[in-house]
Design a protein around this nucleic acid. Structure first.
Lengths: 150, 150
DNA sequence: TATGAAATACGTTGTGC
DNA sequence: GCACAACGTATTTCATA
């Protein structure tokens, strides 16, 4: 197994998760280490893949993607090889893809410009992955992307 | 309605969404504007709420939250006032809360340490929000948090 | 809104512990 | 693995167009 996560690294991860643009100077102060030590540790966390990247959280409505949906996938041909994520990866409207336990095989989180765009996206997903879909439209998002409980 | 999104602001949002720690200097070069102009625009996008914040994307396994689940909520008492998000907000294991169209009222995305923690979380959600739950366990995450198609 | 310049703060690397 | 110091670069503000 991978080596245990030290409290300092945990604190660094927590702080950067809550504020991804936090300066190394601030970060150092918050975790009680020198700037260069923090710098070194952040680099290692990035290399390890514990920190997978940094992103600005955007408002869907304001960037022209006001329609969010959850799409559950069921293979049409149960004997087909399970390469669905690969087949779907190039579709940029798909923000996330989860392999799930339950009646269906995958759940996708998608963002589109309009109901028409959703219709077209569903057609594309069914075609490219050979699946049937069940779509749950998101009416509103009380909250999203909250900091992890670490 | 809010004023239309200019191409430059769109580009800024796209770049920061893809790389949240990108420097203003780089950003300026990428969108073809001076550093101070970009600085000004980023501030405005933050104030407008188009940029809601910045975050480091973390690996659930490595931070000790290896179990992800989607939880659908159905109110036990259909006559009760709909203040579910408020009731659930304090539970930090809940990363996102979507109000959805369909058989159920809400879908939650949660991350926990173990099956036992999930069991306890479900108990807590049912108690605090007076709902019944349907849980879909995530087996693996082929991809997540990809950049928005803008 | 944009730019360019000036002052301050920060990132980054090397050295020694 | 950490701290300190030194250098170059980035951020931030302001004056000006």
């Amino acid at each position: 197994m991978s080596s245990a996560l030290e409290p300092v690294d945990k604190a660094i991860a927590r702080e950067l998760n809550a504020d991804g643009r936090c300066s190394f100077t601030d970060l150092a102060a918050r975790v009680g280490l020198s700037v260069s030590a923090v710098h070194q540790r952040v680099r290692r966390l990035e290399e390890r893949g514990l920190i997978k990247g940094y992103t600005a959280r955007l408002d869907g409505d304001q960037i022209g993607l006001p329609l969010t949906a959850l799409i559950s996938l069921t293979p049409t041909d149960p004997a087909a090889p399970d390469d669905y994520p690969q087949r779907l990866e190039h579709i940029r409207e798909i923000e996330a893809c989860y392999s799930v336990a339950g009646d269906e095989s995958y759940v996708l989180l998608v963002r589109v410009t309009s109901p028409r765009a959703l219709e077209e996206l569903l057609r594309q997903i069914r075609e490219v992955a050979n699946v049937s879909t069940r779509t749950t439209v998101v009416l509103s998002t009380p909250f999203e992307g909250r900091p992890a409980p670490i």
